[in-house]
Design a protein around this nucleic acid. Structure first.
Lengths: 188, 188
DNA sequence: TGTAACATTTACCGATCGGTTAATGTGATC
DNA sequence: GATCACATTAACCGATCGGTAAATGTTACA
């Protein structure tokens, strides 16, 4: 199997897991949906868990890349970028395929902190927090670490609620919440 | 099976699903963990889905009851109660059994909005929002609906992150975020 | 054209899935 | 003590679980 074919497999597995859930999607169905036979899959991934970890690594890279690029395209100034995070989020919520966050779902299904899948989800959030912190510092926030933590909480809450309630309304509410927190972090 | 025995079954099933996940816990294992035979379970619940729904109804009632009582015990004044939500949350996070929110997990595993389990999770969050809104009104917030929506976002985000990162730190951060939002909603 | 290397398919493994059937207790009523 | 209603157990159903072995292409080079 070529490297590109392998990437394609991981990408398709990612979509299948995202849509269906990790436990709910079996390897037989995965083989059917990806068009790669089960034996061929197991040539490259020793277990289902390893395949899941590969999809999570891909998703982490894709999502953080997308968010950073989108944020920077929406606003040049660091302080505005902090708000633009929530404009990008709103765009994501409106995609028809949106079904919450892959890592929240992963941590829901693999709850043990010692489990590699759970740990990968935790790491994804840590990397987002680091990115937010960096931007808050550049923007000159009074307490950049604290502001970044607050914004991450708002982001995660918005994702959860966008998946359950009216996503448009939630996106607006999250943006307004972020604005309020950012303002508070610069004033006074 | 007596009514109390049935309640006990649902309570034990709730714990099993909460700890293990809905797809991951099979009916055989459920029978073993609850001490009620599979046949006896199916005498009272036509499908696994119905049993899950029963556990969610119980959890909804238990959680909202606990939160309201705890919040009222922690603070007499409505405005202080809005902050006390996050003190209660911090207590919850420190329980050794804490493993995120049952309804976030339910919506992670049952993603279709039309699915009864997903709908039940959405309803739980709606009821929480209604309670927050009521308190915000009593407290005299400028825009009670908006403030309640913001606080709910913070609550959900805090739960997700408390499950992934240091729960104590997240609880502190969430409380501080809530304070900032509440202050902003009364000032100006 | 023969053959070695690799990828893919088919069939299968024991275990478990959600759910059911038939047999076995068990307790109250007559 | 016989009988009837009910609760429980054990055994079983076809389907699917994660994972593997053996057979069957397919391709590249000699």
């Amino acid at each position: 199997m070529s490297a590109s074919k392998r990437d394609e497999l991981v990408q398709k597995a990612l979509q299948a897991f995202y849509r269906g859930g990790f436990h709910a999607i079996g390897m037989d169905r995965l083989a059917k949906e990806t068009g790669v036979s089960k034996t061929a899959i197991y040539k490259h991934f020793r277990t289902k868990e390893e395949l899941i970890l590969a999809t999570l690594r891909l998703r982490d890279e894709q999502f953080r890349n997308w968010l950073m690029r989108r944020v920077e395209a929406l606003a040049p100034a660091p302080r505005d970028q902090l708000i633009a995070i929530f404009d990008a989020l709103a765009e994501w919520f409106e995609e028809p395929e949106f079904k919450s966050c892959m890592f929240i779902k992963a941590s829901s299904e693999y709850q043990d902190r010692a489990h590699p899948i759970h740990a990968t989800a935790a790491e994804h959030k840590r990397l987002l927090l680091a990115d937010f912190t960096e931007r808050a510092k550049k923007a000159g926030a009074k307490e950049p670490e604290a502001l970044a933590g607050e914004l991450l909480i708002v982001k995660e809450g918005a994702i959860v609620l966008a998946h359950l309630h009216d996503s448009n309304q939630v996106a607006q509410m999250a943006r307004r919440t972020a604005e309020s927190l950012i303002n508070a972090s610069f004033d006074g």
